[in-house]
Computed example of a mutant assay.
Amino acid sequence: MPEGAFRTARPQRLVVMGTTGFIVPSLEHLLEVGHEVVAVYTQPPRPAGRGHKLRPTPVQEAAERLGLEVRTPRTLKDPEAQAAFAALRADLAIVGAYGLLLPKSVLDAPRLGCINLHASLLPRWRGAAPIERAILAGDAETGLSIFRMEEGLDTGPILAMRSVPIRPTTTASELHATLSRLAAEMLPEVVDGLAAGTLHAEPQPETGITYAHKLARDEGRLDFREPAAAIERRLRALNPSPGCWCEAKGERLLLLAGEVVDREGEPGTLVELPFTVACGESAVRVTRVQRAGRKPMTPDELQRGFPLPVGTKLG
């Protein structure tokens, strides 16, 4: 930690709970400012890749690198798991993109309760996929909310909130990284305020509630009858996962990036080379594409090995 950097005056016993890489910067920063992380909870390793080998979560990898105790229960509903959590005698639990339900006994176990790092301006986009849903909806801004957890879905009172813009070129991966860093920046002040008893939560507004339902894999299938602006947002929102795709000459193509252009034609038809496809309104000029089993490439590179003439219909 740089000389003169912030360091907490009240070290707390913390439990950190997460599965994706979203909470990793927060985990690292909490240690840097002087807190004690007594355990890290994450989901169990899952099969991945061609060999289906078990792969630990990004949170488990980070925790092991930092020399922290890692716990990977499949559920927190059974009494043994709840007793093990309570035995940690934590002051506070910090949750971010964990993916498991926390029963009331777990929520009540830490002295200061449990708080959640949520990637939206609550109550907008409660739920599993707030970053992607905000981009899909064409929102001009989103942000990071830190709230006290209760039994409802992201319904708890707000402890801190900051907004960030969603620019016309922002992808889900870029927004994920921005909000992950913002969470790490905001969190130490929140922990210190809770420990000192000087930070008080405000109830969420009762208006403006929307839900960010979990992404389904088939949401990546492009329907070119939609307006080009909606298609372009989908390319950014589903980057990198689950990805957007269409079919050409019986092969699946991943469309990684594109831009709206003023062209017209039968929706789903290539109207200009190397890869401009007509939509229900205007067209999308694809700027990055990937064939199955290949590396990402430009449309010009695609045309050299997989030529698609003007008039090609994409399925």
Rank of each mutant, 00 (worst) to 15 (best):
F275Q: 11
L102Q: 12
G311H: 12
E251S: 11
I158K: 01
G293S: 02
T298F: 07
L175Y: 12
R133E: 00
T72F: 08
K214V: 05
I135E: 03
E132A: 15
A86P: 02
L175F: 08
N116D: 07
V277G: 06
R10A: 13
P45M: 09
R50N: 05
V33S: 04
R111T: 13
P242K: 02
E264L: 10
V59A: 04
D108W: 04
M17E: 06
C244N: 03
P242E: 04
A87K: 13
R285Q: 14
L92D: 07
V95I: 14
E3S: 11
S145L: 08
G250S: 06
H52V: 00
V24S: 11
F6H: 13
G243K: 01
V191N: 05
D218W: 15
P110L: 10
L136Y: 01
G4R: 10
R148D: 00
R55C: 09
M161G: 00
P45L: 09
R291S: 05
I115T: 02
L54R: 13
I209G: 00
G67I: 06
V191I: 11
T276S: 08
L314C: 11
P123I: 03
T20I: 00
R46V: 14
G96S: 10
I94E: 07
A83W: 10
T269N: 02
A90S: 13
A62F: 12
V24C: 13
G96I: 08
V106G: 06
K104Y: 08
C114E: 01
G34R: 05
V95W: 12
P296W: 13
A196F: 02
R263G: 01
K214A: 15
R71K: 14
L54A: 15
D192Q: 05
A90K: 10
I166S: 06
A90H: 07
G18D: 09
T298D: 03
V70F: 09
L66C: 03
A93Y: 11
E69G: 00
K53C: 04
G67H: 11
S145W: 03
A129N: 05
P205G: 02
P309L: 11
A63T: 04
E141K: 14
E3Q: 12
Y211I: 14
R181F: 04
D192E: 15
G96F: 12
V59Y: 09
I231A: 07
P296Q: 10
A86E: 13
H176Y: 15
G208H: 00
L101F: 15
L136S: 01
L112P: 05
G51S: 12
A177G: 00
E281S: 12
T57F: 10
A216G: 11
L121V: 12
E226T: 00
D139T: 00
E281A: 13
G67V: 05
A128V: 14
Y211F: 15
S120C: 01
I23N: 09
L122H: 02
E3M: 09
G113W: 07
G265H: 08
A216L: 14
V277K: 10
Q303T: 11
I209P: 02
D154K: 10
E185N: 01
P73C: 08
E3C: 01
T276W: 11
G99H: 12
L88N: 05
I115M: 04
R181M: 11
P296A: 13
